[in-house]
Design a protein around this nucleic acid. Structure first.
Lengths: 244, 244
DNA sequence: CGCACGGTTGACGATATTCAAAGGCTGTGG
DNA sequence: CCACAGCCTTTGAATATCGTCAACCGTGCG
């Protein structure tokens, strides 16, 4: 991990300005955030926070992909969140964190020291409102994921995951514009996200490839050839999925 | 559903006073809530809200048990939340609800009309703070449930569920003090909560019975004979589980 | 060049689902 | 009070999906 004291871009030029925890702030409020913010960078594979750690700062993901996961005593792992740019790490009012945060790719965080940030919540309603919104959105997402984990087949899980990658990368998530898209996770990490084994992930991805739904350049870069078929495989709704 | 305009108990005598969305309010603030609140009762089996419904009010569960669930196009169901007394239904700033809410037992709700409640959020920080806390707690719970759904075996799922029932009923949840405890859900509902089939739920419950971990009076009332063994079966941590 | 890591593929097996039938409560009506 | 209907639950047998184990491949890096 490296602290980038020098590279602290202006908030006004921030790529996640319109979606992150600061999205509702006016110029004045941004200045208050600017004072307590600092950038931190992590290389792919770095542990960002350990379960049980003192939570010294909260942060927004500026660039890259990070994972939240929980490990059972015997080593089974379940990923409980995937953080893409503009997503938020940490919760106010709680001193420790209850899962591991790991950089899946190279990651840049915009960090706020927790104590001043907590104080700021009381004085800047635009931040606390937005934070509430983010928390509730994450809760909705978690509940959708519960449906996937509890009820979907391996094939449906994979298709849902790929479709989600397409959607989030399109909407200005990563730096990449569209084709070719990228899987920011290894097969093993995907399996932990979907509640499968890495072998099953591999088999299902290759099945979609053989059926002509996906095309792979290398293991990580891919294109969707048949969006219709991909959506049909998610089990999400019977019709063509026109209503986004 | 029936609206109980007459039976509107004083907040100060409310059984969920110390844990619900109002728990941080002082006397003044309680009065503000009192004005916009009304009690509604539902019989077991009643639908409280339908997915997609206009969300005209938000509410706290005062008595009984309600379920949140999502249904896939082909009928598969996944429960995404179990609401016990003091739990909260609805979210501010969103007009519709994205899952079905059903009364599992007879239920009494303390309802707040959504619009005045939203306004109140801006003026009464003790409510919005508590609401944030509740949302974040639910997010934590949802993430724990993701581990259960994605990684636990049928046996572990059942044991975890039973242990959760014990814990929540002990802490003054339902009206019942301890033994005998009650399963507020049918086998079918439990299966939807745990991502299993009802047959598997039945088999696993009977397995725990045969092993002398649980004893059943009727289908719903039970006692835990061997708490240690129950916890060991959850897969949650290797040690005795002394640290709550 | 060769090692290491991630990924693929195959054979086999286990866990949970599916399908089917029968066994109890509970409540209602005769 | 008993009989019957309906629902929930139990139990069994067969099946399927996914996991496990193991070998192999390919790509990138030292």
């Amino acid at each position: 991990m490296s602290i980038d004291l020098l590279t602290r871009p202006k908030c006004s030029e921030c790529p996640i300005r319109h979606r992150a925890v600061c999205s509702r702030c006016d110029e004045d409020e941004l200045l208050q955030l600017e004072v307590i913010k600092s950038y931190k960078s992590f290389a792919a594979g770095d542990q960002i926070m350990w379960r049980g750690d003192e939570l010294t700062y909260v942060a927004s993901v500026v660039k890259g992909v990070a994972t939240l996961s929980k490990t059972m005593e015997d080593g089974r792992v379940q990923m409980v969140g995937l953080l893409l740019p503009s997503d938020f790490i940490g919760r106010p009012d709680r001193r420790t964190i209850d899962f591991d945060v790991v950089a899946a790719t190279d990651v840049t965080l915009c960090c706020f020291a927790r104590k001043p940030f907590d104080k700021l919540l009381d004085t800047v309603p635009h931040v606390s409102q937005r934070l509430m919104e983010i928390a509730l959105d994450e809760l909705d997402a978690a509940r959708d994921w519960m449906v996937l984990l509890g009820r979907k087949t391996a094939r449906e899980k994979i298709a849902t995951f790929v479709e989600m990658m397409v959607r989030r990368q399109h909407v200005g998530g990563l730096g990449l514009d569209k084709h070719p898209l990228v899987l920011p996770l290894t097969r093993d990490e995907i399996s932990n996200y979907l509640g499968l084994t890495l072998e099953t992930v591999s088999r299902q991805l290759n099945a979609l490839k053989k059926e002509g739904v996906l095309r792979f350049n290398d293991r990580r870069r891919f294109e969707v050839i048949d969006m219709q078929a991909l959506h049909a495989a998610t089990g999400d709704d019977a019709d063509g999925g026109v209503l986004s």
